[in-house]
């Protein structure tokens, strides 16, 4: 069976959930080989998780290079050449998209970006914030596919996980150098793109302090917190929580929008949510057009009451 190269997405010595999604998706195309690129000692911490999700091989490229993203590209490019894989799978993130694009250019491969499903025939995309579903196929060998986190249900599988160390080839062109890195503090809440429940606040929340109402409701539901761009631009909530066209795309089981009007650019990031609840004091707000259940009312009254009810049910 052909190999499928999976670029391992890891942070602080742990595999991200998206890595397991890639390994699960890869099994539909062939035999998954995990590719670990990171500083010395990285692969040892990741191997068990990779094996438990079906990695037949683990290619280990350990390097202390400060070159920005190009080591990943060079390693994958040399593996594409040596293994002629059925496909290369990378998860959608700022880094993932960049690595994938460069790899496609270097290996003359089709780039199938932002897939929500993969099959031997091709990939499925959700376009324009879910307004369209499109199918696409590669016209080249070893297509480079980026998969949107949260679109595949993780399944465990036993993999041999045979480790093989690989050299990091010298960079093909000049690289940017990393001089400092500050990873975002994750906090205790689930990651926005991985959460099954998301509670978001908009300009209607009114201030950074008031966002506590959104956070409290989210915590009662074990949810991630999101925000509209207006809320982010007004300084109520940090940028990395923005949902929408220029923010994150989320597709949880449940999305609760508090004080969000539902502009088309916001909807682009959340309208594929399975169930949408909206609270807005304006009965004409467009968010109600896509809400399964809408309450026309003051979020400062409705959200705390909802939170109390949830807490009551849980106790």
């Amino acid at each position: 069976m052909a190999e499928v190269l999976v670029l391992v997405d890891h942070v602080e010595g742990e595999n991200k959930k998206s890595t397991y999604e890639l390994l699960t998706a890869a099994r539909a195309l062939g035999e998954p080989s995990a590719v670990v690129v990171g500083p010395a000692g990285t692969a040892g911490k990741l191997a068990d998780g990779l094996k438990a999700h079906g990695a037949a091989k683990i290619y280990v490229a350990e390097t202390d290079s400060t070159d920005f993203l190009t080591p990943q590209v060079s390693v994958l490019a040399s593996l594409v050449e040596s293994t002629n894989p059925a496909a290369v799978l990378i998860s959608v993130s700022a880094d993932g998209k960049e690595i994938a694009g460069r790899l496609a250019v270097r290996t003359d491969s089709a780039l199938l970006g932002d897939a929500v499903a993969v099959s031997p025939e091709g990939v499925t995309h959700s376009v324009f914030g879910g307004a369209y579903i499109a199918e696409a196929k590669a016209n080249t060998a070893h297509p480079v596919i980026t998969l949107r986190p949260g679109s595949v249900e993780v399944e465990q599988a036993d993999g041999a996980g045979a480790e093989e160390s690989v050299e990091v080839p010298a960079a093909a062109g000049r690289s940017a150098t990393v001089t400092a890195r500050e990873p975002l503090a994750g906090g205790d809440r689930p990651e926005l793109t991985e959460a099954s429940v998301v509670v978001s606040g908009g300009r209607g929340v009114g201030s950074a302090e008031n966002f506590e109402i959104v956070e409290k409701l989210a915590d009662s539901l074990g949810a991630a917190v999101g925000a509209s761009r207006a809320a982010v631009d007004s300084g109520y909530y940090p940028h990395q929580f923005q949902v929408g066209q220029t923010g994150k795309t989320v597709s949880p089981q449940l999305y609760i929008a508090l004080g969000i009007s539902g502009a088309i650019q916001h909807r682009a990031g959340m309208q594929t949510s399975k169930t949408i609840i909206a609270v807005n004091k304006d009965a004409e707000a467009p968010i109600f057009e896509i809400a399964d259940f809408g309450v026309v009312g003051d979020l400062f009254k409705v959200a705390p009451q909802l939170q109390e009810e949830i807490v009551k049910r849980k106790s």
Binding site: Q271, D292, G294, V302
Partner: peptide, 14 residues
Amino acid sequence: KSAGEKIEDEGDGG
């Protein structure tokens, strides 16, 4: 996606 139910808050919206 079509609109579902929409209610007016009468003190019991939550």
